[in-house]
Design a protein around this nucleic acid. Structure first.
Lengths: 341, 341
DNA sequence: ATTAGCACTCCATCGAGTCGAGTGCTAACA
DNA sequence: TGTTAGCACTCGACTCGATGGAGTGCTAAT
């Protein structure tokens, strides 16, 4: 037995219907719903076949059918009609405050959540390890030294240091030159003992300041290593009865608040740059086995990527979600490309 | 009729018991629970009185009693034994990563949440309007100009600007001097047209850069105006059955995610610097009418304050919460005092 | 191959019955 | 007069069975 045209149509109808209502759908419904002009009895036979094939399941005997993970998968892979969406008002709202990467991404998460009514997550760029691009020391007032460290990707880090007594303006100037000469273009693994020795040698008598500075730099670099995740609309999941069961919801919300495993989620198959859909058990995160997750990758700079994820019930509106992500991805790509020019 | 010693003792016993169990407490329980050696019948009479006085209520006829808001209020005001707590392991964990205000406060929220099992919120400092302390422009590479703006309270803001063609190193140096001379010590309201005119006059030919810079500064200042709120442990509220009712929980979690009205919550009676307890309807936030909120103020600099809040069920462990906040507040005050020296 | 018809299954809902915790009241007692 | 024992009563929680309906699977007719 195999999937002929008609079975496919029926399956599609079942899924469409279930996506809308969230209730198991019966043969009579399909009989009316489609333009196949078949009686409910015929549909029943076909449904029985579809169940045997594993595309749909009955929650219990003599209930209607709901799509299985396999069914959703087929739907997403072949039957979904992707439609381009206007995300324009979204877009206007975005451009508004979008100057800092942080705010931008938080905004993206929020707008996406509001537009889709699901929970959303966005990660910033992931660099293997950022290289130092530029360092600058300045004395802000009599007691404090401000170190500004610019990393690859124009990530700017600030660190206030207590100003060592007896450090003159010329010393600071000198330090600036030395630091930039020796550290620019290096990442943390490359700042080794020999580099440090050279640094100290070149900055006679200021060794102790150097040590503190290197700490600050190391910290700035490593801070960027755990990629930030921005979430929004977590409470949206409470809108779906199948997810608002106490345990399920509690675990899910906790996960979204903690953000600990979310990066794993987003980085699965990260070599794939298209839009990906994970249904039920396909996700790596235990607490999301009753959910579906849709992810997209956007490009920040050449070879450096961030990701967007949407978490919702299995019966999420895949078409809308995929469409929205598609447009959003394109627009984000554009922003960053433009930003670079 | 009035509250005599015995009634008070019984009320206290009722509240204590209810805090632990969350179940309405009956006369027999109290009869055994206290050392009063009274029969349940006597207790019943007293409970009847206490109800008449408004300190306890029955969820329904012939159920046990639970404390009313008024009852909790009396308890918190007079009957609670405040106990100092050790928050020491908390403390160690804190010192660890605590260099940036942002991370510090987020950590505080998290640790508090883990320790108390309630939802927590922490606000950063609120300045009326921050003054500019220091400005620095640097050319990071051929195409980009980095503006570093340090505000009162050592809040550092960065802004990348496209480098206008033909801007020489000397120009930048000059701009730095001019900007610092004219803008240091001013807040946004003080940077008016006459200041701007003077700026432009002093920086012959670089007027267009100035305009952009002023935008950046204005943005940096105003960004700080909506005070950041850090939350943690939102999902903790799902642990309490009386709050995990679908609607209540949903509203609450939404509020905690949105953070919109939380500042209102924390700023009520902000002139009071002690620890404050809001029970049920006493809070200003509608969705928290089934909760209690405990807030504390800590001092960042002279006259500049931040706040900590804990949101939990009305039957929260007030003693523990108040105790924890007390110690934490002291320790935060210490940090910031030390930091200043 | 399709369909009408029918028996069957199982969940959801409702109401009746029971249980038990807890109250309020009364009468007796110290 | 304050305390207590006793008892009738209330009301939610829980259980159980009956009912209804949506939906199925099977069979026989078309």
């Amino acid at each position: 037995m195999e999937l002929d045209e008609r079975k496919l149509k029926i399956l599609q109808a079942i899924i469409k219907n279930y996506l809308e209502t969230g209730e198991p759908v019966g043969s009579r419904t399909i009989s009316k719903f489609t333009d196949l002009n078949l009686s409910s009895a015929t549909i029943r036979n076909e449904m029985s076949d579809l169940e045997e094939l594993g595309y749909i399941v009955q929650p219990y005997t003599s209930a209607g059918r709901i799509p299985s993970d396999k069914g959703y998968r087929l739907y997403v892979d072949t039957m979904m009609q992707s439609r381009m969406l206007e995300v324009e008002q979204m877009w206007d709202a975005l451009n508004d405050k979008a100057d800092k990467m942080e705010t931008l991404l938080q905004q993206v998460a929020k707008l996406l959540a509001v537009n889709t009514n699901y929970a959303t997550l966005v990660t910033g760029p992931q660099y293997r390890s950022r290289k130092v691009k530029f360092i600058q020391l300045t004395d802000v007032d009599e007691t404090q030294l401000l170190a500004v460290i610019v990393l690859e990707g124009n990530i700017v880090k600030n660190k206030m240091l207590p100003l060592a007594a007896g450090l003159e303006k010329e010393d600071i100037l000198k330090l600036n030159i030395v630091l930039n000469t020796y550290l620019t273009g290096l990442d943390m693994s490359e700042i080794n003992l020999s580099v440090i020795a050279k640094l100290k040698e070149q900055s006679d008598g200021l060794g102790n300041v150097i040590t503190e500075l290197l700490d600050a730099i190391a910290q700035a670099i490593s801070e960027e290593e755990d990629i930030p995740v921005y979430t929004s609309g977590a409470t949206n999941i409470l809108k779906y009865p199948e997810l608002s069961d106490h345990h399920v919801a509690s675990d899910l919300l906790y996960e979204l608040e903690e953000k600990k495993y979310l990066t794993d989620l987003l980085n699965e198959n990260s070599e794939e740059h298209g839009i990906q859909v994970y249904i039920g058990q396909e996700t790596s995160v235990e607490s999301m086995k009753d959910c579906s997750v849709v992810t997209a990758t956007y490009e920040i700079e050449d070879g450096i990527y961030g990701r967007i994820g949407i978490v919702g019930p299995k019966r999420m509106d895949y078409e809308k979600v995929v469409g929205t992500l598609q447009t959003l991805k394109t627009q984000l790509d554009d922003i960053f490309k433009k930003n670079k020019e």
